[in-house]
């Protein structure tokens, strides 16, 4: 009993630390939700209320304007297209990098990671010039191309890590069993790399969903604007409409949270356990 009591006491600092971290992470979300539900006059009421007395959805109704819907659609198109292009491309690149050993490939791999050393801010002007020269300003294509450029290297590296853990023996076994390389890739490699593919997809999705700088620079009309840029609408010259801003923030965050919730069980590691001896 004594030792048990001691270990419980030993856990107290850890629990306190965990609670503190949870508080730091969750407090802004809570505040966002709380403000979004307050009537227009309440956000700055003194004393401040943690939770509105009369929660209302009026901010949501106001925020869900046609423009907002347009931004939402734009974000979905741009993020979706980026994911659909980046992830398969990265998968093929990473697979060939793990399975075929040529010296030139390791140079390529190093170059891929080198590209990541340049911050987006440093690349934006040359990319802007290229986009302009290609007559792509204010198009979906400009953003999709830029986002692929930014996410592809990281996606390749992420997937490479997962693919190296798929034992080569399994593809050899499939080859013996009569499967062509492409068939083995779909039947064996992809299912085993699924946690990695899911993780990479989520990564690309989040990066593009929240991207601001490129979206601001390349789009000029409301028709092409994505959510992070569009939310500036609430920050006006004469004040910030906090209620609507927070309501739209909730709506922007919701898809990400939902996707995470459903995919978290897909991040199962150890899926290859038991494949080969040892």
């Amino acid at each position: 009993m004594a030792s048990r009591g001691k270990s419980l006491i030993g856990k107290v600092p850890l629990v306190i630390l965990q609670l503190a971290i949870a508080f730091l992470v969750l407090a802004p979300f809570f505040w966002m939700l709380s403000v979004s539900l307050k009537p227009a006059n309440e956000p700055f009421a003194i004393p401040a209320r943690l939770w509105p007395d009369n929660p209302t959805l009026e901010n949501y109704i106001l925020a869900f304007r046609p423009e907002f819907r347009r931004y939402f659609l734009n974000s979905i198109i741009v993020s979706g297209a980026t994911v659909l292009i980046t992830v398969p491309l990265a998968l093929l690149a990473a697979y060939s990098l793990t399975r075929y050993q040529f010296r030139i490939l390791s140079v390529f791999l190093a170059a891929v990671i080198l590209a990541q050393f340049f911050p987006a801010g440093a690349m934006i002007i040359p990319i802007y010039k290229m986009v302009k020269a290609a007559n792509l300003l204010d198009t979906y294509a400009s953003l999709i191309i830029a986002y692929i450029t930014v996410t592809l290297p990281v996606a390749i590296w992420m997937l490479r890590g997962f693919l190296t853990r798929v034992p080569k023996t399994l593809e050899e076994a499939a080859a013996i069993d009569g499967a062509r390389p492409l068939r083995a890739f779909f039947d064996i490699v992809i299912p085993l790399a699924r946690p990695g593919i899911v993780a990479t997809t989520v990564f690309v999705l989040i990066v593009t969903w929240q991207e601001f700088l490129f979206a601001l620079s390349f789009t000029s009309t409301k028709e092409m604007r994505t959510l992070p840029v569009g939310m500036n609408d609430y920050i006006g010259q004469y004040g910030i409409r906090y209620g609507e801003l927070m309501a739209s923030s909730v709506m922007v965050s919701l898809p990400v949270i939902v996707i995470f919730f459903f995919l978290q069980r897909q991040f199962v590691s150890g899926l290859t356990a038991g494949a080969v001896k040892g």
């Binding site: 399994l170 050899e172 076994a173 499939a174 013996i176 299912p191 899926l271 494949a275």
Partner: peptide, 20 residues
């Protein structure tokens, strides 16, 4: 000839079972 075209079956020393 590719392994699949040789019409043979093999038992691997380290099994090579498909874990999924």
């Amino acid at each position: 000839l590719a392994p699949g075209d040789r019409d043979l079956a093999m038992v691997f020393q380290n099994y090579g079972l498909y874990p999924h």
